[in-house]
Computed example of a mutant assay.
Amino acid sequence: MGSYAVERRLGSGGMGEVYLAYTAGGDPVAVKLIRRGRIDPEIRDRFAREAEIVQSIVGTSRVAGYRAHDAFADQPWIAMEFVSGLTLNDYVREHAPLVAMLTASLGILLAEGLQTVHRAGMLHRDLKPLNVIMSRRGPVVIDFGLGAMTASDAASLSTPGWPLGTPRYMPPEQARGESGVTTAADVYGLGAVMVYAATGHDPYDGNSRQKILEKVRDATHSPDLTGLPVELEQLVSSMLAHDPERRPDLTAVQDHLSGLLQKMGRSAKSARRALILETFQDTDNENSVPAVPAPAQNSRLSSEPVEEFEPSIFEPEPEPAPGKPQAQHQIAEQLRDLYAQRTNLLLR
């Protein structure tokens, strides 16, 4: 695709597929390709708008970076920065939900990313655990396909009772197919993602898409917050308010979560690093750098302060210089291993 050499498929959806590809210099990129059966002039235009969106929000560590696109190729494609790491969905499913402190850090960081999107005059409109990568720099938001849609797009591509988006994470106004959805929709999506991160279940569930949509639209049907840490209940409940006017803005969300971290004796910096230590797993084996060890099954971090350091600063120990005693080199190896396993960094 373009100048990129495709290696393998990373995933697929109703509209297209995503592939791992490499530049001529060997840098990895994620290339999104529209399915042939879904290509028409309207889809090409929407795809071009998505490319414009991601180009307009460069310069943030919370959003995957733009590389190139061709909306008018035989099969339209867009190349984005490849972000190594598990999705939040996969991390929680394979390991365990996050404790309150880590969920608070996740919420602050994702709110930062959404603020960048909103300042560019855009919405995401499909924030969910599958669209959050737990990277070596913290959570990164991907997939702005729905954000590229205008109100007329949504009206023409939706059918009655079948609005575009992910029902478990979409706000009531989007579930009703209303036009003029505001930034409050992304606040709702963030609250729903925080519920999943902290509990391992969705705010709403059902045995069909329609059943879930009915629950989301019903103002008398409250979201399921079972298992949500008590420290987060008040904020998350307000973020999931049925009326978008009653939801806090993203600045208020960040302020509340920052205050919560302070009560726990944590700085935002310390909490972010703890989140990375707990959740990052390198999924780009061919381009890996020294990585944080993968967390154990059902691992948890204690409330003790985490030593403040960046995981990426670790480099392989050089071979002992000529004449350096081998025993001294072995002692250095052992000390480094012990340092990496200290209990106040990552408790099993």
Score class of each variant (00 low, 15 high):
L275E: 02
Q262Y: 06
P139L: 07
Q115P: 05
Q55D: 10
G323N: 09
G265A: 00
P160A: 13
L225H: 05
R137I: 11
Q210K: 11
F309G: 04
P229L: 05
R246Q: 15
L275M: 04
T343Y: 09
Y66D: 12
F82K: 00
P172C: 11
G13S: 10
N285R: 10
M80Y: 08
T220C: 12
E333L: 12
L275Y: 03
S179V: 09
A185K: 01
L345W: 06
H221T: 14
P97T: 11
S3T: 14
A291L: 00
A241L: 05
R35K: 15
Y4R: 03
A185R: 02
A79F: 10
A79S: 13
N89M: 14
L346N: 10
A96R: 11
G265W: 00
I276L: 06
M134N: 07
E173N: 08
G138I: 03
L114C: 11
G59V: 05
G323M: 06
S302V: 13
R38A: 11
D218A: 14
N285T: 06
A198V: 06
Y188Q: 02
P295H: 10
L228W: 03
D126F: 04
A291M: 03
D249L: 02
P223A: 07
I78N: 06
D249G: 12
H95E: 06
V92K: 07
Q330H: 02
V54A: 10
P325A: 14
Q341M: 14
G16E: 02
D224F: 04
E286K: 11
A296N: 14
N131Q: 13
A175I: 06
P129T: 08
R93W: 12
H242L: 11
F72R: 14
A100Q: 08
T103W: 01
P318L: 04
A321E: 15
Y19T: 06
D126M: 07
D224A: 11
T343P: 12
D337P: 05
L277P: 00
G26V: 13
Q334K: 11
E214N: 11
V29L: 02
M134H: 06
S238N: 04
M149L: 15
F72A: 10
V99R: 13
A274L: 01
A5G: 05
D143I: 07
A291S: 13
N131Y: 09
A154W: 01
I43R: 12
S156A: 15
A71H: 09
E7H: 14
R342F: 07
V253H: 00
S105R: 00
E233L: 14
G200H: 08
F144Q: 00
S208D: 10
V31T: 09
S105E: 00
L114Y: 08
Y196K: 01
L232V: 06
L164G: 11
F72T: 12
V63C: 09
D153A: 09
P316C: 05
R44V: 03
S302R: 15
L106A: 02
D27S: 14
L106C: 02
G147H: 02
Y4T: 03
P28V: 07
G259Q: 05
G147M: 01
I212M: 07
F47L: 06
S299D: 13
Q328L: 14
P318K: 04
